[in-house]
């Protein structure tokens, strides 16, 4: 009888612990969001990626449709090569979609915003983005502003 009580109590305890882990997985870390099951990859070449990091969100009109899978430097083109993993259900992006690196808020993390073009063909796995727009680098902006001031 006593043993049965111990077993019940420990069973409830283990269930609680696993339940807590499950809660952390689903509610806190949203595990499904990061392990996008079916994705296709598209590559974009940027002059300057600023502070973009791997796993940063990829959005269209602010809706998240994928993430940055990898960032490399391409020594042939002298540009940064950014690989985007986009969920397969979003297969409607036109071939001339433009990618820009934006910042969430003034100090927030950087993400990639896609802007659909007008082409009839759509992006497929392994395609390259035709138009990219670099991240804003504050130093360059200030530098340009100062040289403009000087010429006046």
């Amino acid at each position: 009888m006593k043993m049965r009580f111990f077993e019940l109590a420990v069973g409830v305890f283990v269930l609680l612990g696993i339940g807590a882990l499950f809660y952390l997985a689903v509610q806190v870390s949203n595990v499904t969001d990061y392990h996008d099951r079916d994705t296709y990859t598209v590559t974009g070449y940027f002059d300057n990626i600023g502070g973009l990091k791997a796993r940063a969100p990829v959005t269209v009109s602010g809706v998240r449709i994928g993430r940055v899978a990898d960032i490399r430097y391409d020594p042939d083109r002298f540009r940064a090569e950014v690989v985007l993993a986009i969920r397969s259900e979003h297969d409607y992006l036109p071939l001339d979609t433009q990618a820009a690196i934006h910042t969430a808020g003034l100090l927030g993390e950087q993400y990639i915003a896609l802007e659909p073009g007008g082409d009839y063909d759509t992006l497929r796995d392994g395609d390259e983005l035709m138009f990219t727009q670099s991240a804003l680098v504050l130093e360059n902006l200030i530098g340009r502003f100062l040289t403009n001031m000087g010429s006046d």
Binding site: F13, V14, G17, I18, G19, A20, L24, Q27, V28
Partner: peptide
């Protein structure tokens, strides 16, 4: 065995 379960419960309740 107990420690990881307790830690998970702690974090979940804390959230």
């Amino acid at each position: 065995v107990s420690m990881p379960l307790l830690a998970a419960i702690f974090s979940a309740v804390g959230v």
